Lab assay of single mutants.
Amino acid sequence: GSLMYASIFGNVSAIIQRLYSGTARYHTQMLRVREFIRFHQIPNPLRQRLEEYFQHAWSYTNGIDMNAVLKGFPECLQADICLHLNRSLLQHCKPFRGATKGCLRALAMKFKTTHAPPGDTLVHAGDLLTALYFISRGSIEILRGDVVVAILGKNDIFGEPLNLYARPGKSNGDVRALTYCDLHKIHRDDLLEVLDMYPEFSDHFWSSLEITFNLRDTNMIPGSPGSTELEGGFSRQRKRKLSFRRRTDKDTEQPGEVSALGPGRAGAGPSSRGRPGGPWGESPSSGPSSPESSEDEGPGRSSSPLRLVPFSSPRPPGEPPGGEPLMEDCEKSSDTCNPLSGAFSGVSNIFSFWGDSRGRQYQELPRCPAPTPSLLNIPLSSPGRRPRGDVESRLDALQRQLNRLETRLSADMATVLQLLQRQMTLVPPAYSAVTTPGPGPTSTSPLLPVSPLPTLTLDSLSQVSQFMACEELPPGAPELPQEGPTRRLSLPGQLGALTSQPLHRHGSDPGS
């Protein structure tokens, strides 16, 4: 009898404990919600809404976190579960008819179910419309201010047509639940991603989709105040780019002037030289400038040598048109050559190039014969006009050509200096018209024969001689050997007369 009593008592207590286990969990969670309300000092109306929603959600799901349970299964099984949970929507909604099984599984994985109690606001006026909503159960109302403009029910759709707008718009009203509602919502990016994977279904979906109420604000059109608020930074940046392009296009129409201050000032006329910023005076940081632009901040801005204009002085008759350009485009679109090309026009420029290279940067340069637009006047290309890779490749080509020119210049200078040193070592320090008596009659020769300089066969020296023939050397430049009979510069000019005159010897006659 005691054994029977113990078994009955144990079973009854276990049954009672299981009955009250759900209630215990409910009270535990309710205590957490109330502690949250007390800690954050939530006001009474919002506090009442929180408690009511918790009670309804507990009775609806029995305190089970559906998302946590669903995430515990593998992905393939999750797709089947989501397809079952959203079967009513996918079967009865017209846009989803005719979709393949794979497309429906992908869509079912992207849908999220939302449960809303009465009085809950789903979308506020001015919120971004980031999702498309399908009503599965219940009814909602749409308000503009305090005026109800629409009441939607089961199988209705609200949001915005995503295929017509590249960016999400703003809501033009509040969406509030009238009863307990079940909503299926899919985010904008998720829907577009699935439709991109199934393009054959995309056309059918957009053609058959009928949005019951379009929440997009109709005033959000390009150029409206609301649109400016939504895309303020983007609009200002776009206007700045367009104004920069218009100014650079105007600059290219004036090829007669070359400016070292950047493309923003290349198009300024002579009357605007004294102004601080020219056409860019209202925004000094709008356009890029070269490193020399920092010198323009000092006094005497109108007389600054940074602004270059072609000189009108005539060229000498024998002067060549100019050196070879550094870039391939210089032959086609440049009416002034790079300062480095002028360094190779003569030997005198070679000796004085490194010492006063900055001073020569603004000297007169030889002109190319074609009066085409200036290379320095070409505006900086924006990322939309020329690819970045093209600019980098041009810079690399320019750097390689500069290296080759520097190597060639160093070799030419070394060769010229070597020839000058050899000339100085071969010439005796001094010569006299009267020579010392020699031991015999073989001493009648006034000077030792001097062998002429070897013929220069280097390509670089031939180019130097060509430049010497075309360029007029300055007075202080050293002379180079030329073709024809060679003669030492330090010898007297009348050596031929010395050989014809008898030598005057000093000596005593033994017979006297």
Rank of each mutant, 00 (worst) to 15 (best):
S304H: 01
H204Q: 09
M327A: 10
G226N: 11
S290I: 15
E193G: 11
G440A: 11
L380T: 09
E200F: 02
G267R: 08
S345A: 08
P510R: 10
L128D: 04
P441L: 09
S293Y: 15
P371H: 09
R358M: 12
L375W: 11
F351C: 04
A477P: 10
E200Y: 03
T455H: 14
D182C: 08
R144E: 11
L409V: 08
Y198Q: 03
G476L: 12
D335A: 12
S304Y: 15
A343W: 04
C368H: 07
G346W: 04
R144A: 08
P387C: 06
N377C: 13
G145D: 14
I151C: 03
L375I: 07
D335Y: 05
P510Y: 10
T444V: 09
V258Y: 10
P452S: 10
D182N: 04
S500V: 10
A477R: 09
G269N: 14
G264C: 07
Q399R: 13
S445D: 07
L420C: 07
L426Q: 06
S302G: 07
P492Y: 11
E160S: 03
G145K: 13
N349Q: 09
P502V: 06
S333Y: 07
E193A: 13
P161E: 07
S381N: 01
E141Q: 09
P255A: 13
S382M: 05
P510H: 09
V450D: 05
S290W: 11
T130Y: 13
P454L: 06
G223M: 11
T218Y: 12
R360D: 07
P317M: 06
Q418W: 03
S303D: 11
M413R: 03
P288A: 09
S500T: 10
K332Y: 09
A433N: 09
E295R: 10
N219V: 10
Y133R: 02
P161S: 05
R367C: 07
L458I: 10
R137I: 04
P291M: 03
P321M: 15
F205D: 01
P446G: 10
S313M: 13
G507F: 06
D190H: 03
P429T: 09
L365C: 09
D396W: 13
S508Y: 04
V416L: 09
S374F: 07
V194M: 03
A430Q: 14
D146I: 01
T442W: 10
E364I: 08
D296T: 05
D127A: 03
Y165S: 10
G323H: 09
S443W: 14
L192A: 08
G496W: 04
L183P: 02
S445C: 12
P485L: 15
D146H: 07
G169A: 03
L340R: 08
E295L: 15
T455R: 10
P288I: 01
N163G: 09
R167V: 08
G281S: 05
P478G: 11
R404N: 01
G511F: 01
V258S: 13
R422N: 09
C337G: 10
A166M: 13
P474Q: 13
G145E: 11
R400D: 15
Q466N: 05
G493H: 11
C470V: 10
P502Q: 12
Q463H: 04
E193M: 10
Y431P: 04
V427D: 05
L230P: 13
L458F: 12
Q423M: 09
R385G: 09
E229C: 10
L183W: 01
K250N: 13
Q254D: 10
A343I: 07
E392M: 01
L152K: 01
E328N: 04
N219T: 10
C337W: 12
D190W: 01
A411S: 06
H204K: 11
R240Y: 10
R137N: 13
P449K: 09
T179Q: 05
T407W: 05
G264A: 09
I142L: 01
R265F: 13
L448S: 08
A266M: 12
N163T: 09
A414M: 11
S333F: 13
T436R: 12
G322P: 06
